[in-house]
Design a binder for these strands. Structure first.
Length: 288
DNA sequence: AAGACGAAAGTGGTTGA
DNA sequence: TCAACAACTTTCGTCTT
């Protein structure tokens, strides 16, 4: 019922673009997505924010020249190569760097498992650095903070994932992640726009294979609902699900409540309740 | 037979003392 | 820190298509 894994395509750079392509795919799109996702997820060299030292640590040039460009004397070369080797070891064995390595490995693991875009991993890594700088990880597990960073990064990039979706793939329990996230939100992230209902729409439209018109309409419905104060205290994803349901009906592309509910990670009942409210308050839209 | 609907009891998260 | 509370879920029976 709460199936977490779902082939889904997101542009690995910006988080959005590829979605459009998916709309045109035939029945095979799911497999195509998965395949492409895996292929892309493993491609390319690791990007800088995910390296413990951001790629900015001291490097000793491999050319045996000194500052003035003259070649070094033969006696000095072995010494230099020893230095190089030592420098390499030291640069990752400093305690804080080791911490980063564990954290970043965890971040990459979760991101890969959930099929999230690379930008998320980078954002999460940046957040993790900031958290570490403020000593927020003291007394907390690295894993929970890493997961919290991913959760935050997802929200910042408008790719909403539930806390439970992430905790499902994390090596820390939901409660701990929640705590870490709160701390993170308070101390590091200055402004996190609370996730809006419209953020959930593209993903739903996608997995349900609905058309772009439905998406537009659903978003319009949500805007209306928002301006009518129908949204306070309600789960954004619940509202999103109901709006998509309504939009699909209006566009003659009806999906069952069950389909929508399971894809939005809410229950049918919630979809129904939101749907009912929408019908009560938004009648004038239907008339038009 | 499957989807939609709603009531009742249960659950987790927020709020206020 | 604890209890009250609202929103949401689960479960299940009934109605509609």
């Amino acid at each position: 019922m709460k199936d977490v894994e779902r082939g889904e395509i997101i542009c690995l750079n910006c988080g959005w673009v590829v979605v459009d392509h998916v709309m045109d795919q035939g029945p095979e799109w799911r497999a195509f997505n998965e395949e492409q996702r895996l292929r892309r997820a493993r491609a390319g060299s690791p990007l800088s924010p995910l390296k413990p030292n951001k790629g900015l640590s001291t490097m000793i040039d491999w050319r045996n020249k000194d500052v003035s460009g003259k070649f070094l004397s033969p006696e000095k070369r072995p010494q230099l190569s020893r230095l190089r080797r030592l420098n390499k070891i030291i640069s990752v064995s400093e305690p804080s760097e080791k911490n980063y390595m564990i954290a970043f490995a965890e971040i990459e693991r979760i991101v890969a498992q959930l099929g999230l875009p690379r930008a998320i991993a980078e954002e999460a890594a940046i957040l993790y650095r900031k958290a570490a700088k403020k000593r927020l990880i003291k007394g907390r597990s690295i894993e929970s903070m890493a997961a919290a960073c991913i959760y935050a990064a997802c929200r910042m990039h408008k790719i909403p994932r539930g806390l439970d979706e992430i905790s499902g793939s994390a090596r820390a329990d939901r409660r701990e992640i929640g705590r870490s996230y709160r701390l993170l939100a308070k101390e590091v992230i200055l402004k996190v726009p609370p996730s809006k209902a419209t953020d959930y729409v593209p993903r739903l439209i996608n997995t349900l294979r609905l058309s772009a018109e439905v998406e537009q309409l659903a978003i319009r419905i949500i805007r209306e609902a928002y301006s009518l104060r129908l949204t306070s205290g309600r789960m954004p994803k619940g509202l999103a699900a109901a709006a998509v349901y309504l939009a699909a009906i209006l566009m003659n592309q009806k999906r069952t409540q069950r389909e929508i509910a399971s894809n939005a990670n809410v229950t049918e009942v919630t979809v129904r309740n939101r749907f009912k409210e929408l019908m009560e308050k938004l009648q004038f839209i239907v008339v038009v």
